[in-house]
Design a protein around this nucleic acid. Structure first.
Length: 474
RNA sequence: GGCCCCAUCGACUAGCGGUUAGGUCACCGCCCUUUCAAGGCGGCGACACGGGUUCGAAUCCCGUUGGGGUCACCA
């Protein structure tokens, strides 16, 4: 069975890069009727954050990307929290120590830091680990470990030859073994590093396709070597292009909005975010730009992934979100999503039909739910007359005065009744329709922009409308 | 700096030897119109450069340049 996974590290806000990877892994797994696994990589105890872990899981839930195996739903290869698998990792480090593919290194962090700084001082960047203890005899190594001396376990990388990474998207990528470090597999605290833990867990969990960000490509030869050291068959390696900041550097918190929660707060729909991420580096065969995860599952293929790193563009995401608001989502769903935003603004949302009507006539006029409250304020509280609107109102105040009696007499308060009244008035009085409607708009909404006036009048209701006109007339 | 990846409009992309290089966002103009939008129509705008291969290159190969990633007891 095809198995894919994401292995987020719980160290901060739920990252769009994680959502991006989750999408690829989920879509590919589902397309092949396989499993999508979420495994929490929490071996870095210094940066670990419990809340972060929960938020990442919640993000996936919000996006509707549900894992087949995870810390919450469990699965045949539990646990799915890496630190809970530490014994497994230690046992595997032991195997490598036994078969000669790894060795204990007794350097202290201080020594390593000093060596690194020394190298820096000598001009060049750094040459990598000096492999001081690589040649230690088995007896000495065992004795020192037994005596309680602190050590790490390092991979014994071949001193010559090449390691070839077969990346599904790029083909064969060659690395000279001389350029690969004897990476730490097991830290002094007994916990594994990513290199060991991820490979062991992937193998044990039956992961067939490692789909991850391109930043991992350069450490993949290490992973290939680890698989080889255990005598295991390699999974497929797939490195997807990195999401970028506008300046083309790797998407970062410092330069962009990387928190999925922040997009959620802006009023971006999960469907829209997923859709947008889906068109980063990948494209629909028929060039459609509005598509859902199920469409992606149906048409996905690695051949359609382009390798240049896509810049994350909020403008286009916003446009796409608007597209969902006016073309994809049902009015009912849109209304439900809008409520929390309106409520947060202090508006009364108890009348569902009213909210639905308001949302309905605003639909083509906003792209983010967070824009909504400001745009519909006059439906929920008294108007705030804007300066330009006030001027417009004064220009046409006499029209409103003339119209008021007629409006008071209206019994069926709908567009079919109201429109002829205004048009008829404009015609007989010789005024342009706009010269009548704009002052009306100012009186009713306090501003010069709004949905069609007749819709606003209908939704607001006769009482409120007459009240506001009278108010305007003084 | 070493190693590795990448390279079509400002951004996202289509293209996979023969196209007036197409679409979307953004921007500009026009139409529609009671305003603002939405929508429709149109415009602006790209194959990084240099060598090859070929009858023919955006498409294939090499180099240059440019951008990015990575060089932790972090993932």
């Amino acid at each position: 069975m095809i198995k894919t996974r994401i292995a987020p590290s719980p160290t901060g806000d739920p990252h769009v890069g994680t959502a991006y990877q989750a999408l690829y892994n989920f879509v590919f797994a589902k397309q092949n009727h396989g499993h999508f696994i979420v495994r929490i990589e929490d071996t870095d105890r210094a940066r670990y954050n419990e809340i972060s872990q929960q938020r990442i899981l919640e993000m996936l839930n919000w996006l509707g990307i549900s894992p087949d195996e995870s810390p919450v739903v469990g699965g045949p290869n539990a646990p799915y929290i890496q630190t809970e698998r530490a014994v497994l990792h230690q046992q595997h480090a032991q195997i490598l120590l036994g078969n000669g593919w790894a060795y204990r290194a007794f350097d202290t962090s201080e020594e390593l830091t000093a060596a690194r700084e020394q190298a820096k001082l000598q001009g060049h960047m750094e040459q990598g680990y000096n492999r001081r203890d690589r040649g230690l005899s088995r007896e000495e190594s065992d004795a020192r470990a037994l005596a309680g001396e602190a050590f790490v376990v390092r991979l014994k990388v071949p001193l010559e030859g090449k390691t070839i990474v077969n990346d599904v998207l790029r083909g064969e990528v060659e690395f000279d073994n001389t350029g690969i470090d004897d990476k730490v597999l097991l830290k002094a605290d007994g916990l594994p590093t990513y290199h060991l833990a991820a490979m062991v867990d992937d193998r044990l969990m039956g992961v067939t396709h490692v789909i991850r960000a391109e930043e991992w490509l350069s450490s993949t030869p290490i992973h290939v070597l680890i698989y080889r050291a255990f005598g295991w068959d390699e999974p497929k390696w797939i490195h997807t292009p990195l999401l970028r900041n506008p300046d083309k550097s790797k998407l970062s918190k410092r330069k962009s909005n990387t928190s999925v929660d922040s997009y959620r707060e802006m009023g971006i729909f999960p469907e829209a975010l997923l859709n947008y991420l889906g068109m980063m580096a990948w494209s629909m065969p028929d060039a459609r730009e509005v598509f859902g995860v199920s469409d992606m599952i149906e048409h996905f293929s690695w051949e359609r992934v382009s390798l240049g790193g896509p810049v994350f563009d909020l403008d286009k995401l916003t446009w796409l979100n608007g597209k969902y608001i006016r073309e994809v989502l049902s009015l009912e769903s849109l209304t439900e999503h809008a409520k929390p935003f309106l409520e947060q603004a202090g508006f009364d949302i108890s009348n569902h039909t009213y909210i639905s009507n308001v949302v309905h006539i605003l639909r083509e006029r906003f792209n983010l739910l967070s824009e909504l409250p400001q745009k519909v304020a006059y439906f929920f509280k008294d108007i705030e007359l804007e300066e330009k609107a006030a001027a417009k109102l004064q220009e046409g105040i006499e029209h409103l005065r003339a119209l008021l009696p007629q409006l008071e007499g209206v019994t069926t308060w709908d567009q079919a009744t109201l429109e002829p009244i205004f048009k008829g008035y404009a015609e007989t009085s010789g005024a342009k329709l706009g010269a009548v409607m704009q002052p009306l708009r100012a009186a009713i909404t306090g501003r010069l922009e709004s949905p069609g006036m007749f819709e606003v009048l209908r939704v607001l209701g006769k009482n409120k409308v007459l009240e506001r006109i009278k108010n305007a007339l003084g």
